[in-house]
């Protein structure tokens, strides 16, 4: 059973079990390994991808649910917000182990695309669902603010 979708702007056909979580299809079959496995039950956010522009936990999203959809992974995000976030992340030494940061960057990018000047409450609300076991949270907040400032400049 083949599932057709667009991944990072490229049409792809996934010939896998339609019940397979998108996470494993991306990683094992499309070799897009930037999206990470952390919990498998949508609790940590390490597997976050954009599904038709909406941050989505790929570990609980079956391939069957993404037929004809547009999926963007950390490897494919583009635009001013993405670049501002990634630059702020590097400049501020946000990452420690770095394993969760693909998911953090995805959510931060989507936040700034929708709300270019988020309040502290909006940052906490948007980023609050992504676990970072290194507890880089203070710098994640700083990174979002710095990226926001850079977008305004």
């Amino acid at each position: 059973m083949a599932t057709r979708l667009t991944v990072n702007g490229t049409p792809v056909t996934l010939d896998v079990n339609p019940d397979m979580p998108l996470l494993w299809a991306l990683r094992d079959h499309l070799k897009l390994t930037g999206t990470k496995f952390g919990c498998g039950i949508a609790q940590c956010g390490a597997c976050t991808v954009m599904l038709d522009g909406v941050p989505t936990r790929s570990c609980v999203t079956p391939v069957a649910a993404v037929e004809d959809a547009e999926v963007t992974t950390i490897e494919g995000i583009q635009g001013d917000a993405a670049h501002a976030v990634q630059k702020a992340w590097a400049d501020l030494n946000v990452a420690q182990c770095g394993y969760c940061q693909s998911g953090q960057v995805m959510v931060a990018t989507e936040l700034l695309q929708n709300i270019p000047k988020p309040s502290d409450e909006e940052i906490d609300a948007a980023m609050g669902g992504n676990i970072c076991r290194c507890a880089t949270y203070a710098r994640i907040r700083k990174g979002v603010r710095a990226a926001s400032d850079a977008l305004e400049a």
């Binding site: 390994t33 490897e75 770095g98 394993y99």
Partner: peptide
């Protein structure tokens, strides 16, 4: 001074163990 791994980790390009793929690899 920024970490040497700062850029690749912000871009999802750092290779962790889970990302290692070998030919004919069984999981």
């Amino acid at each position: 001074i920024t970490r040497l791994d700062a850029v690749e980790k912000a871009r999802g390009l750092a290779t962790f163990t889970i990302d290692v793929m070998r030919d004919e690899m069984q999981v």
